[in-house]
Amino acid sequence: MRQRYLRRGTQGLGIFLGLLGITGIGMTHVIFPGLHCYACPLSATVCPIGLLQNLVIAGTAPFYLLGVLAVYGIFLGRGWCGWFCPFGTVNDLFSWRKVRFHKAFSPLKFLVLLGTVFAAWRLADTWFCKLCPAASLTASLPYFAMGLAQPTRPFFIHMGTLAATLIGMTLVARFWCRYLCPMGAILALFNRVSLFGLGFNQKKCTSCGLCLRACPMGIDPRSEVNSTNCIKCGECSSACPQGALSLGFSLPGARGYAPLRFPWPRSRANRVPSGK
């Protein structure tokens, strides 16, 4: 329980840092470690996906961006999604139905990332931003309230994607993070190698299945610790009565049992049998 309060605290910090512009600090050089529109009237940090598209359009070799993202990735991996990202927090607020993971759609987020880069490269436009529900929520709506945005087609498209994402979130917990988030896709690549991660002690596991029920991402924590879909929120380790799952900072090789996972689960073969 203590861990969950801590997580709510860091998620609150994420929202506060996302809206740091309220202090009048202005735009800083910092890249936000989550999905948060830099066009938001109160943001003081740069959206990594928005910047990525701009750099692709401008043809800049993205040393700074990729360096920062790799540092973020090696530090927390997708832990940012579970512990910090404000849009992830919005997802959390709607995660009532922790349905089991629909594997087939899982690689979609990588396609979204590739599509975003491809559209920026070939069409020289920031197409992801025009569809991004985080931008709908934190830029389109505030500017509409301020009278800068008009109820025209781009506004309606934003409202459409926001509504669709919200509906998705209520039907499937962490819908956006599971299937569509390109920022999640980038951080997912570092999930296995990051210093923050889940450890799994198979000897202690009684296969009771409580962790499965607790996981908001709908994965099987026993076989998929630190896989691309694990956001390291720690709900499973809190739920585990045996202490078989643990969350914390360590060298990635020192977490004990860490089965080899491709970015998505390949077959049922390397799945640990559930307690049923």
Partner: peptide, 21 residues
């Protein structure tokens, strides 16, 4: 590039982020 990132963030081009057409 940090400065470049800041500049990109500090100027809002209304059509780029889909605030308008």
């Amino acid at each position: 590039q940090a400065r470049q990132a800041q500049r990109i963030g500090a100027v809002l081009c209304t059509s780029c982020v889909g605030i308008e057409e």
